[in-house]
Design a binder for these strands. Structure first.
Lengths: 228, 228
DNA sequence: ACGCGTTAATGGTGTCACCAATGGGTGAGG
DNA sequence: CCTCACCCATTGGTGACACCATTAACGCGT
């Protein structure tokens, strides 16, 4: 709760490495980190341990802390994802993530059609309806549209009954958020996109897994198309 | 590798929490950990930080280290997955993971059909062929069959051209391995399963993404059916 | 000049003692 | 019985220290 995070160090170093500012093979030392961020060795060590757990660095005696090549990174960790989305290469990262969405979200929607609670079904159709209103009014790039879009996808993932899909809800949220904050979202969304969102909600509401899966596939395909 | 891990503490605590031995709300203290594992407070703190990064615990002054409910866990982290597969609830975990495979692997196979190198295509068909031989000879539950099965799926994921799918290759490997080591693998695999594996390999070899996706979907559907 | 064993410097690993901050439990007072 | 202020257990963070693996430099012999 106290956002007083003991590790702005981790944040800075993580972004620096994932952003390519520190490329593979670069070497850091605890003293260097401590000096730059004006922290003690202990907290530098803790930040380093976290970085190590994320697969970004590896440390050894006499060697210091060496930055690992990107194929050793824990690319599925939310922190790494966010850092990479904030740095250069965000386009490529966005493509990879969208491909993952393409794989997961349709199935998640199908599962949600089987397992969602009544309250969730209601909120889904209400959200989709409001989404259509905002989209047709030309606010497809606004904050409220964004929040509702995220909410709808999050509801679907979390209601899938699969904790792994639930965990990916955060990732999807970051991706959606990233898309509009990078200015890739049109003020007037494609009508078929709005149709598809409503179709997913309605399909889940009536428990039609196949239809939900198909409609969600349409959504993600459209998103993917928009990225090239 | 420096598997010379300074933190058997993390292993032990992680398994204890994910296994339910320490349920949500349980409280630990650094001194307690230090005393039990005979380590200093510093290393106990580092282990705790890692646990915290995995979403297993939360720590605060005067509060100690409280175990978080399972829906706060970082269920997509390989370590958490492995711990949970080793403890009770492995059946449920296996179901969730298989559902994830069902979502990801078909698309990954389709991508691999577009992006795999010539060497990979060759190895894929060779592996599938050997797999059939072993399966028909009644060694479907043997170690060599397992290794080849893992190798085939790993090749597909890693050749997908998507680093996120690559990262999931480890997970898939653990799942496949878990299935046979838990005795859920028949000595004589279903002929259609062998057919499907060969079909995937051949489809990828000739660059037919749609066929690869369909065949892989058949494989995973069969696996899922075997779990109930 | 080259190869190889020995030695020294480097920098992480782990421990300890210490102080600051915090927030939940406790008990006094209304 | 409820409120609220205080206390202190426990984490957060610092600095100094010993230890030791690894690397690089050195020196010796050929």
């Amino acid at each position: 709760m106290p956002p007083v995070l003991h590790s702005p160090v981790l944040e800075a170093l993580g972004r620096r490495i994932t952003g390519g500012e520190l490329s593979a093979g670069a070497v850091l030392t605890l003293d260097g980190i401590g000096a730059e961020f004006e922290v003690s060795r202990t907290v530098a060590r803790e930040a380093m341990r976290l970085l190590e757990a994320l697969g970004l660095v590896r440390s050894g005696p006499r060697v210091g802390i060496v930055v690992l090549p990107h194929d050793a990174w824990n690319v599925l960790d939310p922190r790494v994802i966010e850092w990479r989305l904030a740095g250069p290469g965000r386009a490529s990262q966005l493509r990879s993530l969208t491909e993952l969405r393409q794989a997961v979200e349709p199935l998640a929607a199908a599962c949600a059609a089987r397992g969602a609670s009544a309250a969730v079904r209601d909120e889904l159709v209400a959200t989709a309806r409001r989404l259509r209103e905002l989209g047709e009014a030309g606010h497809g790039d606004g904050e409220e549209f964004l929040a509702l879009d995220i909410r709808l996808h999050e509801l679907l993932m979390r209601s899938s009954g699969n904790e792994l899909f639930s965990a990916l809800a955060d990732v999807v949220a970051v991706v959606i958020s990233g898309r509009t904050h990078l200015g890739l979202m049109p003020a007037h969304p494609e009508p078929e996109a709005l149709d598809a969102h409503e179709a997913v909600a309605l399909a889940v509401a009536r428990g039609d897994g196949a239809a939900a899966e198909e409609a969600m596939a349409r959504i993600v395909r459209e998103v993917r198309g928009a990225l090239g």
